[in-house]
C-alpha cells in the first residue's frame, strides 16, 4: 500500500492484535443512534469470515435468530463498533466458514475443528 495513504488512515485503524479469529463465538457491541439518543446494541454469533486489510477490514458474524439465519458485516475500524467480546474459541480448518449457511438446528453453529493428532504424529 502507498505509504502516504497508510499514514492518513493510521490514526483510524484499530491496532488490536487479533482480538478474535474466524470461528470464534463473539458478542459485538455497536453504538446505535435513535433520534438524538445513543444506545449500545449487541449482536452475538459466530465469526464466519474476516476480509480486507487496513481501514477496509471487515468481519461477518452469523447467528440463528428465531430459526432464521442472520448475517451482519461489521467494519473492524468503525468507531461505532465499540467492543468485541470473545465468548468461545475454536480452531476451524478453513478461513471462511460459509459451509455453516446451509445447516439447520444444532449443527448450524457447530464449527468443525482442525485435527491436531496427525501433525503431532509426524513430528
Amino acid at each position: 500500500m502507498n505509504q502516504i495513504i497508510k499514514d492518513i488512515t493510521a490514526a483510524q485503524v484499530k491496532n488490536l492484535i487479533t482480538p478474535f479469529k474466524v470461528g470464534d463465538g463473539v458478542r459485538v457491541h455497536t453504538k446505535v443512534r435513535e433520534g438524538d439518543k445513543e444506545r449500545v446494541q449487541v449482536f452475538a454469533g459466530v465469526v464466519i469470515a474476516i476480509k480486507g486489510s487496513g481501514i477496509h477490514e471487515t468481519f461477518t458474524v452469523r447467528r440463528i435468530s428465531y430459526g432464521e439465519g442472520v448475517e451482519r458485516v461489521f467494519p473492524v475500524n468503525s468507531p461505532n463498533v465499540e467492543k468485541v467480546e470473545v465468548e468461545k474459541n475454536s480452531k476451524p480448518g478453513k478461513a471462511r466458514l460459509y459451509y455453516l449457511r446451509g445447516r439447520k438446528g444444532k449443527a448450524a453453529m457447530a464449527v468443525k475443528e482442525k485435527r491436531f493428532e496427525d501433525t503431532a504424529a509426524k513430528a
Binding site: 502516504i4 495513504i5 483510524q12 481501514i55 468503525s78
Partner: peptide
Amino acid sequence: IGMTQIYDAQNVLIPVTVVE
C-alpha cells in the same frame, strides 16, 4: 495518490481520493 476511506466526525465512512 490513490483512494482510501476515512471516518468523519459522525462516524460515517467516506470514500476519498488523496491528492498531493
